[in-house]
Write a protein that binds this DNA or RNA. Sequence first.
DNA 1: GACTCAATACTGACTAGTCGGTATAAATCG
DNA 2: CGATTTATACCGACTAGTCAGTATTGAGTC
Lengths: 214, 214
Amino acid sequence: MSIETLVRRPVAPARRKLLDAALSVIRTKGYAATTIDELCAKAGVAKGSFFYHFKDKEAVAIAAAVYWSEVTGALFAAAPYHRHADPLDRVLGYIDFRKGILTGDVPEFTCLVGTMVQEVYETYPEIRDACDASISGHAAKVETDIAEAMNFHRIRADWTAQSLALHTQAVLQGAFILAKAKGGAEIAAASIDHLRRYIEFLFQPATPKGKEAS
Amino acid sequence: MSIETLVRRPVAPARRKLLDAALSVIRTKGYAATTIDELCAKAGVAKGSFFYHFKDKEAVAIAAAVYWSEVTGALFAAAPYHRHADPLDRVLGYIDFRKGILTGDVPEFTCLVGTMVQEVYETYPEIRDACDASISGHAAKVETDIAEAMNFHRIRADWTAQSLALHTQAVLQGAFILAKAKGGAEIAAASIDHLRRYIEFLFQPATPKGKEAS
DNA sequence: GACTCAATACTGACTAGTCGGTATAAATCG
DNA sequence: CGATTTATACCGACTAGTCAGTATTGAGTC
């Protein structure tokens, strides 16, 4: 996806350091409050390097959203829940995995693009689109497993795999907001528990009346 | 709650106009990107008036969070769903009401304090606390109806009324983030539909196996 | 293997402008 | 009368962005 993986040339170290700094700083204080000087200081890089790699502040936000998708994409791709044969187990495993990574301080487990899009959705359409692409791209992966689970368990429903996938993201994003407001992950974990219970209900094997065994 | 309701003195008009401006501008572009000059311009008020009523920018954010609680508190207090005798109907009516007010542009139906807390949770503890108080205070009202519904319908559960009330807020806040990312309310409405379905499930009269009638 | 050469990567001082906050003196209102 | 509001000018700190120049690298060339 990135230009570096196509062209055989190592990533410019300053660029990567700036992107790492952007993830950290923007997650902690948001986009508007983040200064380029702070990014450079955190990255240990001169200010000129910033403008060599990014044409302006908006550009680093967009690049950070793309980078975020790469980093988290790799994290989820390597997660163990993909091993389950039953796609429903993969979905539930995903939920459990999301709950499991609620560790450390709040800025460490919350979502960069969810944070950014809140402040920029009206003022920086390109950043908003980059955030949307990140969220929707991730949701699409979850949607795949949900759709397979619906097939596998012969679910006929008045909801779609897509809407449920997006709902899982809504719960997670909302859980992060509560965690930020309350200063801890416990509340977020409780909300994820509710989400898991809901999904288990949706895929319950039989309707209460009429025993339709497999 | 506000000082004006206790002391019998009319609200200073400039103060109220500034608070209204704060709700609108901060909801649209966030706290950090909001400038005092813009608030004054939008309020049609001189800059001196701002610093007459608020000691600094942080103070207006805190006051705006309190004002937000008052405004939304009045909105929900006047909503029709309180009339239902069955507390579960009040809970579901609340959900429907939340879905119903997803009209107009995104900044008009999204949440001030949810937006603010995302950017300030680490950098402005007092604003964070004001946002938390607003969210938690609202959730507590929902919790009351949930608790009564649990009693009324004799629900024995491994979840608490409080955690479910906070979960509803998480879903709503997360739905707002999706709406901001995608630029429309539809996605938020779909997520609220999932929330409603979940609550209906939790209060389902009987468990599938073993007919325990009332 | 030293020697260009050019492209890439990086530097840090500098500028122009913004923004939070102050100051003040006069006007208006209740 | 005191509380509120206005209008405007101002300041200092900060911040996005510029620029002219330096360092590094890698591919050819002899």
